[in-house]
Write a protein that binds this DNA or RNA. Structure first.
Length: 204
DNA sequence: TCATTAATCGAAG
DNA sequence: CTTCGATTAATGA
């Protein structure tokens, strides 16, 4: 069973609505917690993480997006401040469309607007599943929850061949576990054939 | 090769 | 499960 995967919007179309491509270096901040949501962002190249820090200073990653994915859209239809930071994990090219232009684009292209609804809907659905799994005290469930979540962004659903392209530290920051715990639990899961590990790469 | 970053491990709490 | 300390592997200049 697979749902429609999220579409990305044509670059030229975004450009015709004053979309501009910006290049960011690794580690550069695209927006930070507390900023107003003023743009629609779509990744042309690179990777971006959305994170925040708890009061102990421990990083918690909300999500990591890659090529052709958009991010921060959930705040686009509200007058709110971002509750998270967006930081580049590598050199990236990102197209940025001013909010009002983007809303105009949606008015003129209803099919894109509908597609976006489908996309937001799907993300919300998996986010709920993710949240449920993350509230578990069982680390295996947290890791499985995260991997299912990541897998939901891609259509292919073969067994143990989806490459989790995250470092163990990033997985730890996404699940609220410690790196060592992630490593140990991952190995245990491999023994139970819940996943495969080849050259340190995680295949789920 | 040197330095930096990520992955591992073992022991203790 | 987390923390600490220490080692080893991988990557890049």
């Amino acid at each position: 069973m697979k749902t429609i995967s999220c579409m990305n919007i044509d670059t030229e179309l975004l450009r015709s609505f004053d979309g501009e491509i910006k290049e960011y270096k690794k580690g550069e901040i695209i927006f930070r917690e507390g900023d107003h949501a003023l743009y629609y962002f779509q990744i042309e190249e690179g990777k971006v993480k959305l994170n925040n820090y708890n009061d102990d200073g421990k990083e918690f990653i909300q999500n990591i997006f890659g090529k052709n994915q958009s991010f921060g859209d959930s705040m686009l239809f509200l007058e709110k401040f971002y509750p998270i930071n967006a930081i580049c994990l590598e050199g990236s090219k990102i197209i940025r469309v001013p909010k009002n232009n983007f809303l105009e684009l949606l008015r003129i292209h209803p099919e894109i607007s509908l597609g976006m609804n489908a996309c937001l809907s799907q993300r919300l659905y998996y986010k709920i599943l993710m949240t449920q799994n993350m509230s578990s005290t069982n680390p295996v469930l947290r890791l499985k929850g995260l991997m299912e979540y990541l897998k939901s962004y891609y259509e292919d659903d073969c067994q143990h061949c989806f490459h989790i392209e995250l470092t163990r530290q990033q997985i730890a920051n996404l699940t609220g576990l410690r790196v060592e715990t992630v490593i140990r639990v991952l190995k245990r899961m491999e023994k139970e054939s819940l996943l495969k590990i080849v050259n340190r790469k995680i295949l789920y």
